[in-house]
Nucleic acid binder design. Structure first.
Lengths: 301, 301
DNA sequence: CCAAAAGTGTTACCTTTACACCCATGA
DNA sequence: TCATGGGTGTAAAGGTAACACTTTTGG
C-alpha cells in the first residue's frame, strides 16, 4: 500500500499501515462502520425477528441485532467487503446460513455515543425470510452447539436490547410498513408458493390492519402479479411455528392455464396456492439484488 | 483519551491517538465517512440541483455534490458531529448559508473504489429548498468572491459528475419521486405561501407526469392539509428564474375562515394562495427535524 | 359430525376521470 | 383586444367497501 503522504485535499489523508505496530494510521479520527440486520421471519401467521444474545461486553447477556464490522481493506491480502451490502450478506449468512435473501439498507444510525467503545456508525438493513427458511433457521439454531444464542422473537414482545437496537428495530418496522404498501416486498416473506391467507397474514401483521378476505383476494389478483398454482397430491397444513416436520419438495407445482378452469380436473375443490408471476425476462442491467422484487405494487388502499 | 488497550471484543479495538505523530491508530483499517447532499431547489417552475465545481484533485474541475467528512472525534477538544445529520447540515449551511431546511438521508454508497484516495463511504441526503431560498442562494453565489463555484443546474441537464455522484443523483430523484407520492414532502420545495399552480408544478416536475388542473386542485384540497390564505395588496407575479427582484414581506397573509366566503370581501377575483395547515400542536416528542413534514399524504394515485 | 377455514358474487357508495366555460390579468 | 392563466362544476365510468352463503378440511 502507498506509503507516501499525498495531500489531494487539506482535510483528507490516505491511510497508512505501520508494519511494526500492526496498526493503521490516519491523520484524522475515523469511525468504525458496521452493518446491522433486522431479520424478519414469517412463520405463516406471525412476524418474527431474529436476535443474538451477546456473549461479550458491552451489553453482555443482552440481545442484539446480527451485525458486524465492514472489512474495509487489508494490506495483507485478506478479503474485504466491496460494499456495505457485502457486510450485511456475510452477517446474515453467518447467523442463518442463508443466502439469496432479500436484503435492503434503510438508514444509518450514527449517534456519537451509541457505542461505548469508540465511534461506530451502523448501516441498518432489513432482511426478509419466508416460512421454509424460517423453519430451517429454527432447526439449525436448535441443533447448534452454542444453543440458542440466536433466537426468533415475536416482533411484538422483544427483550431489552443492546446499544440503540430497539430504536433500529422500531424504524425497521416503520420502513417495512411503508415499503409493503408501495412495493411487492411482501413476497419475500413467503415461499415460492403460498396461499392467499398467508399473503393476507403478512399484510395484516405488518400494517396492523385487518382486511376483508374477499376484497383482499380480489385486489391481489387484480394486480396481475399472481399465478395460480395447482398443487398435486398435497394436503399441506397451514404452517405453524410448532411444526417440526420437514416439508421439502412435497408440493409439486405447475402453472395453470389462465383459461382452463381448474374445476374440470379436480374431483373436489382444493385449497388454492399462488406464486409470483414471472414477468417477461426483466434483465434490465440491474445489479441483480438477489431475491428482491422491485416492481411497483401499490396494494390495498 | 484512553491509551490502554481494552479488548471488549476480539474483532474490535478502541482508537488511540499518537501525540508525537499526531495520528490516529487502529488495529483494523477504518473507512472515512462523508455526507453528500443532493440539494433540490424549486424556482416556481422547474427543479434544480446545486452542484460544486471541484477545485482540487481528484476530479478537479468536474462538478460534484456538496459534501464533506464527518467530524468523528477530536482529543484536542475540537467540535464533532454528533450524528451524520450534523455533517450534512454543516455542509448545507456552508454552501447555501441556509439552516432549518428539510434534510433526509436516503442511502449509503460504499463501493470500495468509489474514491481513488482511500476507502470512503458516503451517506447521501436530499435537501429541499423553496423559491425564496432558491433565489437567496442565487444572489449569494453570484455575489461571492470565488464566483460560481456553486451553481444551480437544471435537473435534466447536468454536467459530468465526479466520483459516483451521477448515480447518487439518479437515486435521489427516484427517492424523491417515491416519497412525494406517499408523504407531504413537496411543501418543503415551496415557500410558506404558494399557489396551487406551484404545487402542481412541483408534482409534475418530480413525477414527470402531468395532471388535470381541476382534478389536481380538488384532490389537494381534499387532503385537508391546505389553508387558503388571503393575500393583501399583492400582485405577485409568477416566479421566474430570471427575476432578480427581492421579494420579501410583500405578501401579508392571514388564515381565512373556512365558512366565510372570500367572495364577500374581494371586489374582484384574486389569485388564490395557500399555506400548509397547522395541525393541533403535534409536539409528539420527536427530534424536531426542523422544517420537515411527516404526516401521511397519499397524493395523486 | 362439527367447527373452522376457504371459495365465490352482488350491490350501494365513493372516487376518479374527462371535459367546457367564464373571468381576470397583462401585453 | 387578445392570449394566457386561473377559477369553478358536472356527468359517466370505474373502483372500493360491505356483506352471506356454501363447500372443504381436519379433528
Amino acid at each position: 500500500m502507498n506509503n507516501e503522504k499525498s495531500t489531494y485535499n487539506e482535510r483528507y489523508n490516505d491511510q497508512f499501515y505501520d508494519d511494526e505496530k500492526k496498526e493503521y494510521l490516519y491523520r484524522y479520527p475515523h469511525a468504525a462502520v458496521t452493518a446491522d440486520c433486522v431479520i424478519f421471519g414469517f412463520d405463516g401467521k406471525n412476524l418474527k425477528i431474529l436476535l443474538i444474545e451477546r456473549g461479550l461486553e458491552p451489553y453482555k447477556g443482552m440481545w442484539a441485532l446480527p451485525g458486524g464490522f465492514m472489512k474495509v481493506a487489508d494490506p495483507n491480502g485478506g478479503s474485504i467487503d466491496l460494499t456495505i451490502e457485502d457486510t450485511a450478506k456475510r452477517e446474515l449468512k453467518e447467523e442463518t446460513n442463508l443466502s439469496g435473501v432479500f436484503l435492503q439498507q434503510f438508514k444509518v444510525f450514527s449517534r456519537f455515543d451509541r457505542d461505548p467503545r469508540e465511534r461506530v456508525i451502523t448501516v441498518a438493513f432489513i432482511a426478509l425470510i419466508g416460512p421454509n427458511n424460517y423453519r430451517k433457521v429454527v432447526e439449525e439454531t436448535m441443533a447448534g452447539d452454542d444453543a440458542a444464542n440466536a433466537m426468533w422473537w415475536n416482533e411484538e414482545a422483544l427483550p431489552p436490547m443492546a446499544f440503540d437496537h430497539a430504536e433500529i428495530i422500531k424504524e425497521a418496522k416503520e420502513y417495512l410498513a411503508e415499503q409493503i404498501s408501495i412495493k411487492p416486498v411482501a413476497f419475500n416473506l413467503l415461499d415460492d408458493t403460498f396461499s392467499m391467507t398467508e399473503l393476507q397474514n403478512v399484510y395484516e401483521a405488518i400494517t396492523g390492519q385487518t382486511y376483508d378476505r374477499r376484497n383482499f383476494q380480489r385486489k391481489a389478483l387484480q394486480t396481475g402479479m399472481l399465478d395460480e398454482v395447482t398443487s398435486v397430491n398435497c394436503s399441506m397444513a397451514p404452517l405453524t411455528a410448532s411444526d417440526d416436520v420437514k416439508i421439502e419438495n412435497i408440493c409439486f407445482s405447475s402453472c395453470a392455464e389462465p383459461e382452463e378452469k381448474s374445476t374440470r380436473i379436480s374431483p373436489r375443490k382444493r385449497k388454492k396456492f399462488f406464486s409470483l408471476h414471472k414477468g417477461p425476462k426483466n434483465n434490465s442491467s440491474d445489479d441483480s439484488e438477489e431475491g428482491s422484487i422491485k416492481d411497483i405494487f401499490n396494494f390495498i388502499k
